[in-house]
C-alpha cells in the first residue's frame, strides 16, 4: 500500500472504504453479504471465541453462505462471552451472547438462512458518538 501523504488522501481512502462497507450492508446491492464480527479480546478468546470464529468461517463456506467474518475487540458483555454480532443485508445488527459451536450452528441455520431470531440475543443498551 502506498503512503498516505496528505489529509485529502486519507479522506479519499476513508470514503472508498465506507462505500465498500455500505455496499456490503445494502440489501438491494448485488454485492450485499452477511457480516459477522466475533468479539476476540482476551476474555472472548478465553471463553472459546477462536473455535467459534474458525467454525463460522469453515461452515459458512461449506454451506455456501456469502459472508464476511472478522474478529473484533471486546463488546463489553463479559458475562455472555463469546459474543458475536451478525448483520444481515439491510437489517439492524444483532448481538448474540453465549455462542459456542452448537449455538453458532443454530445461528447460521435459523437466523442467517431464515431470518428467524434465536435465544441469546444481547440487547444493545448504549449510544454511539454518532447518535
Amino acid at each position: 500500500m502506498a503512503k498516505i501523504t496528505s489529509l485529502n488522501d486519507l479522506r479519499k481512502i476513508k470514503d472508498e472504504l465506507q462505500q465498500k462497507i455500505r455496499l456490503r450492508e445494502n440489501a438491494d446491492s448485488p454485492e450485499a453479504m452477511v457480516q459477522i464480527r466475533v468479539g476476540m479480546a482476551t476474555s472472548g478468546i478465553a471463553s472459546g471465541a477462536k473455535e467459534v470464529f474458525i467454525f463460522l468461517v469453515d461452515e459458512l463456506e461449506k454451506r455456501n453462505v456469502d459472508a464476511v467474518v472478522t474478529q473484533t475487540g471486546d463488546m463489553g458483555y463479559s458475562y455472555a462471552e463469546p459474543t458475536i454480532e451478525v448483520i444481515l443485508p439491510g437489517k439492524d445488527p444483532v448481538v448474540f451472547g453465549w455462542v459456542d459451536v452448537e449455538k453458532a450452528d443454530e445461528i447460521i441455520e435459523k437466523y442467517i438462512r431464515g431470518g428467524e431470531l434465536v435465544e441469546g440475543i444481547i440487547p444493545a443498551n448504549y449510544n454511539t458518538i454518532d447518535d
Binding site: R37, M75, T128
Partner: peptide, 17 residues
C-alpha cells in the same frame, strides 16, 4: 439508553483491530 455513551470504546467491538 442515553445512560451509556461509548466515546473511548467507540470502536471496541466494531472494527477488526
Amino acid at each position: 439508553y442515553q445512560k451509556q455513551i461509548r466515546i473511548a470504546l467507540r470502536n471496541c467491538g466494531f472494527i477488526d483491530p
